[in-house]
Design a protein around this nucleic acid. Structure first.
Length: 421
DNA sequence: TCTGGGGTCCTAGGACCC
DNA sequence: TCTGGGGTCCTAGGACCC
């Protein structure tokens, strides 16, 4: 009757336990560290070959930190510069996505061998349905959780924390009770004693904004949230989110484990080492812009997808974000086509301020083989009524494009026309 | 010394169609 | 001439998560 779920979190770099070590993300971080240390040393072993965090210069953020570093107040998503103030002696390591992907695959294949109904939640988290796994109900799921934990450790040397509960919402919270390398079981009847004292922020789906708004109403814990009338929550947080808040506070969640999912969009973005201006740094921006388009195109091709909505994302020094979309009448994974569409979108974005970040996204994805079928079946002839207007619009846009040259010089896209801007 | 990169989902207004 | 819904698509912004 009860469905059991578990949420697993890997603890990265367990071999560095005891040392204050910080893993920093950001595309430039790796290069900066490489520059500081000379030729690439095997960083998992030669920790001493890496710079102290205090020598860092740049715009990176902390991806994760060992518990020894966390003792200084350093934590995920914190700017590296801020972390350097809190713990200047910490060792700085670059992110290594190759390694993470490798361990992630290993960890997930171990899980699915034991419990096949698994939902992927990123590199280091999964939900697992214990319901139909033989022995999954023993000791409330603790026995199976122990088996998974032990098998992962023996195969990878990685520790993980698991929470077992009647649904995903509670399982996720339970997984944090005993970090690292812990197991906790929470039953439906434990919600009042174990869940209600927690901060509302602990609910997966309540972020900084919702937390602040709740606090404005004097609501800090999940118990205080549960004490609010459902109607009151609907009134103040909207029909959908208000109802969800009320259900979540009472530990109600009937979302099933989702084992399959198709990607919705793919994107690439980069934060510049220094802010760039669309006029003053036109050539540099144009190059980056084209590279981003090429990267997205490669990602799409590698994974076998095409998309028909191309978007750009701009972040300004004040951290405000602007996005502009441009939909095509065909699906594509072609770098040049993406670059042209992105150029059209970019033209409609405010470019009078310096930029901190530039991104390119392709959405409205479709698997490549489906698109090939659609094309064979005469996609263009079968345009739905509203798509005719899209086509007209892109024709107008194309006409405009001829009239005035693209920002960031679209023409420098092809390798053959390398004329100066 | 400010705050990465890659995602998902939701909302809301306007266009357009029936 | 004015009134009126419902439905879908597109775009832009924003919250949130790993």
């Amino acid at each position: 009757m009860d469905a059991f779920y578990a949420s697993v979190e890997l603890l990265r770099y367990p071999q560095l336990k005891g040392l204050p070590v910080v893993i920093a993300g950001g595309s430039r971080t790796r290069e900066l560290i490489a520059a500081a240390q000379g030729e690439g040393a095997p960083h998992e072993i030669a920790v001493d070959a890496f710079p102290r965090i205090s020598s860092y210069v740049g715009r990176g953020v902390i991806t994760t930190a060992t518990y020894a570093a966390r003792a200084f107040g350093v934590g995920s998503a914190m700017g590296v510069m801020k972390a350097a103030k809190l713990c200047p002696q910490a060792v700085l390591l670059p992110v290594d996505f190759e390694q993470y992907r490798k361990y992630s695959r290993q960890f997930k294949s171990i899980v699915t061998e034991i419990a096949p109904l698994m939902e992927d939640r990123g590199v280091d988290e999964v939900y697992i349905d214990f319901t139909d796994v033989p022995g999954g109900q023993r000791e409330g799921g603790r026995v199976l959780a122990r088996l998974i934990q032990k098998t992962i450790f023996e195969a990878t040397g990685l520790t993980c924390s698991l929470g077992v509960a009647p649904n995903k919402l509670i399982a996720k919270m339970a997984s944090e009770f005993n970090k690292p390398n812990g197991i906790s079981v929470v039953y439906a009847e434990d919600v009042q004693t174990k869940i209600w004292p927690l901060s509302a922020r602990k609910i997966n789906g309540i972020g900084p904004k919702a937390e602040a708004k709740l606090a404005g109403h004097g609501i800090h814990t999940i118990g205080e949230l549960a004490a609010k009338e459902r109607a009151w929550l609907l009134e103040h947080f909207g029909k959908s989110y208000g109802a969800w808040l009320h259900d979540a506070a009472w530990g109600r969640d009937d979302r099933p484990i989702s084992t399959e999912s198709e990607p919705v969009s793919m994107s690439r973005e980069t934060t510049f080492e220094r802010d760039l201006h669309s006029v003053r740094h036109k050539a540099e921006l144009g190059e980056i812009f084209t590279e981003l388009c090429e990267s997205v195109a490669r990602d799409l091709q590698r994974k076998g997808y095409v998309g028909r909505t191309v978007g750009v994302k701009l972040r300004y020094p004040d951290f405000k974000i602007a996005t502009r979309d441009h939909s095509l009448d065909v699906y594509t994974a072609d770098a040049a086509q993406i670059r042209r569409a992105a150029g059209l979108a970019l033209k409609r974005a405010p470019l009078d301020k310096p930029l901190r970040l530039l991104g390119v996204r392709v959405g409205n994805l479709m698997p490549l083989d489906e698109w090939k079928e659609a094309e064979k079946a005469g996609w263009k002839a079968n345009l739905k009524p509203n798509q005719a207007s899209v086509q007209v619009k892109s024709m107008i846009d194309a006409a405009e494009k001829v009239a005035e040259p693209d920002l960031f010089s679209a023409s420098d896209f092809s390798a053959t026309s390398s004329r100066a801007v």
